[in-house]
Computed example of a mutant assay.
Amino acid sequence: MRPSPAELVRTLVAGRLPALAHVAHRPGPHHVRHITDPDGQLLMLVPVVSDLSVALEPVAGDDVAVVLDVLDLPPVAGAPSLGRAWVSGWATRLRDDAQRQATLDFADAAPTGDLLDVGTRFRLYRFEVAEARLERADTVLRVDPEEYAAAEPDPLHPVEAQVLADLADHHGAEVTGYVRRQLGHAAPAGPVRPVRVDRYGLVVAYGPVPERHQLRLAFPHPVDHPGELARALHPVLCRARATRTPD
């Protein structure tokens, strides 16, 4: 199994990666801090004194159309990109009780001292996702809004860089040995390097540049929490067999 387009979009827009906001009929784009709630609705934390705040002001009562643009930042050099997510909707400034609840929701996902100044120096905006797209390898896939809302961001994405560093620093020999056992006579002569990990498996790279190859090692079961990763990696690190699918 691999992450679905809806899961990839939810992972990219969860709030851990830098984002740009494009406001319809206004100059831009604008850098913006954001998070998504469990239903995938976006919250944007915007300074009162900023070009983005001005752009988000409605004209003659019209809704403000916004597109959030998030490009993946691969965790290690040479790692494949998850792509680029584009989600669009209509932004609404939150006030009173809605603003207070949104401040708490934002703090749960991305604590920052600036949330103490919501209502004075900062404003919170919410928009429901009306359209979602995933751009990968010059192909744009449209994601159904209901599928987007039902999907979950990958639970390993926040710790992916640390996991890959640990595997490279402390378990390189085990990963290389496992891949050689799986590939048999087609096994690479040189070392194997883990380059991505998600809830469904581990992606490794091997061979010389530019003919470098990638291989996906599938976990026995999807990982629901980082604490389950050690069990999922047990077949790789302990000379057991596991399912594999080439990228």
Rank of each mutant, 00 (worst) to 15 (best):
A77D: 12
G78N: 03
G78P: 04
G78R: 00
G78Q: 01
G78I: 03
A79E: 07
A79W: 03
P80F: 02
S81Y: 04
S81P: 01
S81V: 01
L82P: 01
L82D: 08
G83C: 01
R84T: 03
R84S: 00
R84Q: 05
A85Y: 01
A85T: 02
W86S: 01
W86N: 00
V87A: 00
V87Q: 03
V87Y: 00
S88A: 07
S88N: 03
S88L: 00
S88E: 07
S88M: 12
G89H: 00
G89E: 00
W90S: 13
W90D: 10
W90L: 09
A91H: 08
A91Q: 09
A91M: 11
T92Y: 06
T92C: 07
T92H: 12
T92W: 02
T92F: 04
T92G: 06
T92E: 14
R93E: 14
R93H: 07
R93D: 06
L94Y: 12
L94M: 09
L94S: 04
R95Q: 15
R95N: 09
R95C: 06
D96L: 05
D97E: 12
D97R: 15
D97I: 10
A98R: 06
A98S: 06
A98N: 04
A98W: 01
A98T: 01
Q99R: 15
Q99L: 06
Q99W: 06
R100V: 12
R100W: 11
Q101N: 11
Q101T: 10
Q101W: 08
A102M: 02
A102E: 04
A102S: 01
A102H: 00
A102Q: 01
A102N: 00
A102I: 02
T103Y: 01
L104W: 11
L104P: 09
L104Y: 09
D105S: 13
D105Y: 02
D105W: 06
D105K: 08
D105E: 14
F106S: 07
A107T: 13
A107M: 12
D108E: 15
D108G: 09
D108H: 14
A109Y: 03
A109Q: 09
A110P: 07
A110R: 15
A110V: 10
P111T: 06
P111H: 12
P111W: 11
T112E: 15
T112Y: 11
T112I: 10
D114Q: 15
D114S: 15
D114M: 13
L115D: 10
L115C: 11
L115I: 10
L115Q: 09
L115W: 13
D117K: 13
V118W: 07
V118H: 05
V118Q: 09
V118K: 07
V118T: 08
V118M: 05
G119D: 10
G119M: 13
G119V: 12
G119H: 12
T120L: 13
T120M: 06
T120Q: 13
T120C: 03
T120V: 09
R121T: 10
F122V: 08
F122N: 12
F122W: 15
F122M: 13
R123T: 12
R123G: 11
R123V: 11
L124P: 01
